[in-house]
Amino acid sequence: MEEDKVTNPVKLVIIGGSAGSLEVVLKVLALITDKPSFALVIVMHRKSGEDSLLEELLAIKTKIKVQAVEDKTEMKPATIYIAPSDYHLLFEKNSTLSLDTSEKVNYSRPSIDVSFESAADVYGSDLVGILLSGANSDGTEGLAAIKAAGGTTIVQDPETAETPYMPKYAIQHLQPDYILDAKGIAAFLNLIDKNSPDKAA
């Protein structure tokens, strides 16, 4: 893996996933350090009204703090934030999260594209965007925005995805920095953590 790719201090890692992505998220979370130097935002398509269920599930499976998102929640490092169902999740310049009930994008709310684009606008090269398994084309335009803003893009290896359409679609339309399986994604995140200015040297 090219260790020199991540030169900026990564402030935010944003993960987008749909069908078949929950398992990957759980696998990745189990393998990464308990106190990462970055904040972690997860945007996952799902039925509305299942927010606390997913939050509780993740909280059981990881030692990293899981924080429920309300409008204008302030993001902190070493914390996981999950986009609530039926809202788009947006990023403000002052590290707070905003919610938005506007039209669905790619038949989805939350839409991965919407959150990726907003994160790219605010975090630029301090951002890592990861797109996982899914059955829809959401996320590809968002990854392109992250790439254009100088961030790092990772797509789950479609071979390892339960529903490969979403990662495949992304790879067909752009060249991600890395194509990795769950283990590879975790290793990458641990590497950023190790290289963060707070922890290096």
Binding site: L90, F91, E92, K93, S98, D100, S102, V114, E117, S118, D121, V122
Partner: peptide, 9 residues
């Protein structure tokens, strides 16, 4: 207005 949302709109 929240800039993130306004900018998007």
């Amino acid at each position: 207005y929240s800039r993130a949302s306004l900018k998007r709109r």
